[in-house]
């Protein structure tokens, strides 16, 4: 094996290239490619072992992206809207896997709405990214369910239906980590990705990720220009890894330290208002207010202080994964087997 001395290594000794993927096949300038870069950065910085990463997705432009990052991880591109169930099975089979799912607004808010709701409700330990552009890209420009009422399609048609706010929905459903980012805001995004990975439970990351081909025109409410103009940060985030300097004393009311299960910390500093990310009602309120004002609010909306993830709730975390169980671990002894049958005599 030849070693490249120039290549960047992370603290755990993995190379930058271990986290890269195949070249993208999306349109030039697609927001999703930015999200891919932020995911690579976040996982590299955290030093997540690439071979333990499982990348799952449904169908759509967003769902193609798992091929573009962490090629040393295992990918599964399943069917439309039903990635959560595949992720669920994989995680239960092997609780040591680090699951990330990439979905889109069509894949999540329409065909996959049922699975999305139940994923959130179960609090499966995974990172769930919605690359949200308000439009069906791969089928050439139909409105999605996250497109705002009155938004205009590329052909000039006006959207008659209100949008579904996936973050408000996730909070209502009992989501334990709910945040929104913008594909063109690397600083906020990388912090959100790291915090999402560190969180134990479903980390729901709604990312406004403009479609440069079908939804980047005048009248669109998810064009790059429109999002840049309307993006309001709810809070500024600082992710401090477990091995980094501990957080200095924080002034109450200015910033909140959110300790993460892996020993890292997320420092959340509200912008222009006081806001506690542990307050569910406050989160719903700021989301509704932003909606009324036509603002695109981004940042961390809610993180639960403590909630068991699904594997813990099911008590399936054994010393080894279910996938590795052998005959002796699966079969009751002969006497028990025969006793069971005898009860049917």
């Amino acid at each position: 094996m030849t070693t490249s001395t120039t290549e960047k290594l992370n603290r755990q000794g993995y190379k930058w290239s271990d986290y890269q993927g195949l070249p993208t096949t999306l349109c030039k300038g697609c927001g999703h490619d930015n999200v891919t870069r932020h995911i690579i950065q976040g996982y590299f910085d955290l030093g997540i072992a690439p071979h333990n990463v499982v990348k799952t997705s449904g169908i759509g432009c967003s769902s193609k992206t798992p091929a573009y990052f962490i090629h040393k991880g295992y990918g599964i591109n399943a069917v439309h809207g039903r990635m959560p169930s595949v992720a669920l099975g994989a995680k239960l089979a092997n609780h040591e896997l680090e699951i990330i799912g990439v979905s889109g607004d069509g894949d999540t808010a329409s065909i996959g709405m049922g699975q999305f709701c139940h994923l959130i409700r179960r609090n499966l330990d995974m990172v769930y990214v919605v690359e949200n552009n308000g439009v069906y890209g791969l089928t050439k420009g139909q409105f999605s369910a996250t497109s705002e009422r009155g938004a205009k399609s590329k052909g000039g048609e006006e959207n008659a239906l209100p949008d579904i706010d996936l973050c408000a929905l996730a909070i209502t459903l009992g989501g334990t980590f709910v945040a929104r980012g913008f594909s063109n805001d690397p600083q906020q995004m990388v912090n959100l990705v790291k915090a999402a990975v560190a969180h134990k439970g479903t980390s729901m990351l709604d990312v406004i990720s403009p479609c440069v081909t079908f939804n980047n025109h005048e009248g669109s409410t998810k064009s790059i220009h429109y999002v840049v103009e309307h993006d309001i940060h709810l809070n500024e985030l600082g992710f401090v890894a477990a091995w980094e300097q501990p957080v200095a004393d924080l002034v109450p009311g200015e910033a909140i330290d959110v300790p993460m299960p892996d020993g890292s910390h997320l420092v959340v500093r509200a912008v222009g208002r006081s806001f506690d990310p542990h307050d569910k009602i406050a989160a719903l309120q700021v989301l509704e207010e932003a909606h009324r004002k036509g603002e695109i609010l981004t940042g961390l909306f809610y993180v639960a202080e403590k909630a068991p993830d699904f594997s813990a709730a099911l008590k399936v975390v054994n010393e080894k994964p279910l996938a590795a169980m052998n005959e002796a671990e699966c079969r009751p002894p002969r006497e028990a087997f025969e006793k069971y049958l005898a009860s049917y005599r």
Binding site: A78, S85, V86, L88, K91, L314, A323
Partner: peptide, 21 residues
């Protein structure tokens, strides 16, 4: 897991089978 529907049941089974269970 008592799933939300049969679409999720088989998805979960395939995810688990893919991961080796």
């Amino acid at each position: 897991v008592q799933c939300e529907d049969e679409l999720a049941s088989i998805g979960m089974v395939l995810g688990a089978g893919w991961a080796g269970a």
